[in-house]
Design a binder for these strands. Structure first.
Lengths: 145, 145
DNA sequence: ATTCTTGCAAATCATTTGCACTTTA
DNA sequence: TAAAGTGCAAATGATTTGCAAGAAT
């Protein structure tokens, strides 16, 4: 990535932070950039390990603080499909998550239009967030039967 | 509950274990009965605390072993909606789970027919399990605004 | 008798907390 | 410079593991 693209990317992240009323810091920009560029549903530890070489002295606590803040402000969403650790995503209600029970890989799958339309909740409930978690065997593992 | 009903209940649990190829033990019968009678999505600790008075010497490890076995054999399902702890259910794909972000209560909600029908997965994926987790505010908390 | 199950204690691992230091508006 | 953000170390809490004793067929 050249200097111009990098500058643009940083500007984007800063803009997103400002739009959501979040104070800008070096660490927050980097974590947000990381999430914007990786649709890999990383854990806190993954984000931390990947960022550490570029941010000497980074603390895992800061990554925890930062992703929690992003979730509160609606920038990111917390995936609980694993059950043992949280994964993070740029918030996007338009897809489901599929976990391969063989290899553990996590896929984004398109959410059928009819499905989100059918998503209703009984009177009295106010729906704020929904997650469709699917489990099974992915194409790659099916081939390697 | 009178003696006859209790005997029937126990017979049911034993039958379910046998049908699923699980060896019968005192502890397994009691944990299964607990799940059959409580649609409260209990955690391991809740099951343990509730059963302990009736099963002196019960170990939490045994509850962990037992629910894991039930999940493997398809009797129970593991809910990951909390993200911090597992909850357990008699396996039933016909409803969604709603978590109130105010009070933390967990509700079973009927799953719209169209929704399960629309649930498709791209070619190559084999779907084995699906969970729809909803979050928002429950009727009781909406009233107490 | 052999195999499976149970229970205890210790280990593990993700996440949270308390607090002192630093950065930023 | 006041308010907020960061980082370290220690605490917490759910789950897992190793292993010895007990139960079932």
């Amino acid at each position: 990535m050249n200097r111009t693209a990098e500058a643009l990317r940083k500007k984007d992240a800063v803009a997103v932070l400002r739009e959501h009323g979040i104070k800008v810091s070096h660490q927050r920009v980097l974590v947000l950039e990381y999430l914007l560029e990786h649709d890999t549903h990383p854990t806190v530890d993954t984000i931390y390990q990947d960022l550490l070489p570029h941010v000497p002295g980074l603390s895992k606590t800061t990554v925890y603080n930062t992703v929690r803040l992003f979730v509160e402000k609606g920038i990111a969403q917390e995936l609980t499909i694993e059950g043992t650790e949280f994964r993070y995503d740029i918030a996007d209600p338009s897809h489901a998550h599929f976990k391969c029970v063989r290899c553990g890989a996590l896929y984004d799958l398109p959410l059928p239009q009819e499905l989100s339309a059918a998503l209703r909740v009984p009177p009295g409930f106010r729906l704020e967030e929904s997650h469709l978690y699917l489990k099974g065997v992915c194409p790659s593992c099916t081939r390697t039967n």
